[in-house]
Design a protein around this nucleic acid. Structure first.
Lengths: 155, 155
DNA sequence: CGATTTAGTTATTTCATATAACAAAGTTGG
DNA sequence: CCAACTTTGTTATATGAAATAACTAAATCG
């Protein structure tokens, strides 16, 4: 019964689910010492890279719904890693900016995640890693296009 | 703000999460006409391919916890797609076997999922698809090994 | 100005996954 | 053989991710 799922292994979705479960466990273990989860880490990185962006822009960037982002931003703010600054010209919006401790924690966590990435992709040569990145991007794009009823480009 | 997440896109875990979300939406839409979800489909395929296996073996094959499998098997059984047959030599265990309608539905759903797979991987050449499959398998294996404290093979 | 849209929020729901604890059956070692 | 332990399937429960509806305040549009 070693390969009972051989039929399913033809499908990238099945393989991605399995691989992602393994990755997520390691990501969470890696981020735990920093008090971060996958979402809070992702949000922090984007805020550090794009200081001053709004919550809507952040949600759009990460492809998560605005309501689900609120608690994430709350968490980062309450830990003093970012600030919610009212936009001076649009008083509905916040501009999210990292604090100095936020930038520092982000850099440390990024280094740890770089190590994590190296562990997980050990034994995969550079060409295959590039193919992986390109293929995942393409699959995401194809999936979105199908879902939105768009034409799927052929190359 | 088109590429606000460029730093994160270095990481296969982030790309996998995004790609998988897109894939899952399309998988569920594809399976909906058959009354199947991703888990019930996966379970049905493995049962068809391995008639007579136990619930524990099925759970192990799909890497899901035994308690979470119970409702999945209940669902397939109540729809008449599989049977739970008591093992004659181990009265604790069930042997899961597909019914004729179960096999038929499985074949139809598999064909639909083949189409889905073709849609999602459109524009990815054969070499890159092979690299994707190999890389995902390797990442899952590396992740498991790290999690279990094993040595990570280098090639 | 009134109608519509946008930003952020709240509350709620659904779903997937994980854990603990159990009964019944099987296995093992003294 | 029998007590201790393990395994199978189950129940109940907790957790966390993700989606939706509805609301407010503010901005924009006609």
């Amino acid at each position: 019964m070693t390969k009972a799922d051989r039929t399913l292994r033809r499908f990238s979705g099945y393989l991605m689910k399995r691989a992602f479960n393994a990755v997520q466990a390691d990501v969470n273990a890696t981020l735990h010492p920093f008090g971060l989860r996958m979402v809070t880490f992702s949000a922090l990185v984007v805020i550090v890279d794009n200081a001053g962006l709004s919550q809507s822009q952040l949600a759009e960037s990460l492809s998560i719904e605005r309501p689900n982002l609120v608690l994430v931003v709350d968490e980062l703010e309450s830990r003093g890693l970012i600030l919610r600054q009212r936009d001076k010209t649009d008083r509905r919006a916040y501009r999210l900016v990292p604090t100095a401790p936020g930038r520092k924690l982000c850099a440390s966590a990024l280094a740890a995640i770089d190590d994590h990435e190296a562990r997980l992709t050990a034994g995969i040569d550079a060409g295959d890693r590039a193919a992986l990145v390109a293929a995942l991007g393409r699959i995401e794009s194809n999936g979105r296009n199908v879902h939105e009823g768009r034409h799927v480009a052929r190359s």
